[in-house]
Amino acid sequence: MKGPLFYAKILLFGEYGIIKDSKGLAIPYNSYQGALKSSEELSEKALESNKNLLKFHSYLSNLDSELVQFRLDEFKSDVDAGMYFDSSIPQGYGVGSSGALVAAIYDKYVDDKITVLESLTREKLLKLKSIFSLMESFFHGKSSGLDPLNSYLSLPILINSKDNLEATGIPSQKEGKGAVFLLDSEMIGETAPMINIFMNKMKNEGFRKMINEDFANYTDACIEDFLHGNVKSLFGNVKQLSKVVLSNFKPMIPKAFHSLWQQGIDTNAYFLKLCGSGGGGYILGFTEDYVHAKELLKKYKLELVYRF
């Protein structure tokens, strides 16, 4: 048995903002993927995944929802026969490792599933997102359902608000000097503690005002610029967003990267932002000159995501 591939995702814009109903833009990232496989002889990593699937099965068995029905007996017998999720997606890195697994389970064990071949109305997207939110809560305690949605559909998703999603197109890549890249912090980030920090900060009126005004405005402007290919304007807005994040989200940025973050803003050579919830994992970078940025960041592992 070998299931279809499900890809990683990158939330280009909107981390934390989407929890509070502002815009977001997520794109599939095909450099990493996962698939359900089965084997009688399991490696240590596969065995760990197999045990995790058993826990996930138990969680789904207790889900009280009219939204979705799983073929749980089949799922259980596949797990007993050595099924595991074979994935190259790094865990705790903000690129949707649990999302790809959720997408694979939904794809394999739901009868009346919504498929990418249908016309994806807003209602269907919202239903899928709700189902995925329920499923992925097993991993994070609270999930928007966006990561699995992106992985399942393998399409860029524009989040206008909680109840308004659309599959969208992004401008095709160019062979220019500019780039979006990932910077590896070489630390694992955990989503739940970061979201707790954010929720506590949201009790502060000044922080709420910053999220609703500066953070939301720059995020929305970045999305608009990116989708319409306004590269010059995009970098101006990403710089402002990078400043806002450095000032207000310090606990989510590993300490070792605070000065590197500031260096980008001071030199205009690159601008950094959170990739997912932060606390480790990948940091997302934007630059108008990837060669120059690579030189300045040569101590770090970078991965190219998109070219301007």
Rank of each mutant, 00 (worst) to 15 (best):
K255C: 04
K255G: 08
A256V: 13
A256T: 13
A256H: 11
F257Q: 10
F257T: 09
H258Q: 11
H258P: 03
H258W: 14
S259N: 14
S259A: 14
S259L: 14
S259R: 14
L260E: 12
L260N: 10
Q262F: 02
Q263F: 08
Q263C: 11
G264R: 03
I265T: 07
I265P: 05
I265Q: 03
D266F: 10
T267L: 12
T267V: 12
N268G: 11
N268V: 08
N268L: 01
A269H: 12
A269T: 14
A269V: 06
A269Y: 08
A269M: 09
A269P: 03
Y270T: 01
Y270L: 09
Y270G: 00
F271I: 03
L272Q: 04
K273A: 08
K273L: 07
K273E: 06
C275F: 06
G276Q: 07
G276N: 09
G276E: 05
G276M: 08
S277R: 04
G278F: 02
G280A: 12
G280P: 06
G280M: 04
G280S: 12
G281H: 07
G281A: 13
G281F: 07
Y282Q: 01
Y282N: 05
Y282T: 02
L284P: 05
L284E: 00
G285C: 08
G285T: 07
G285W: 05
F286Q: 03
F286T: 00
F286P: 02
T287M: 01
D289Y: 05
D289C: 07
D289T: 01
Y290I: 10
Y290S: 02
V291H: 13
V291S: 15
H292P: 05
H292L: 15
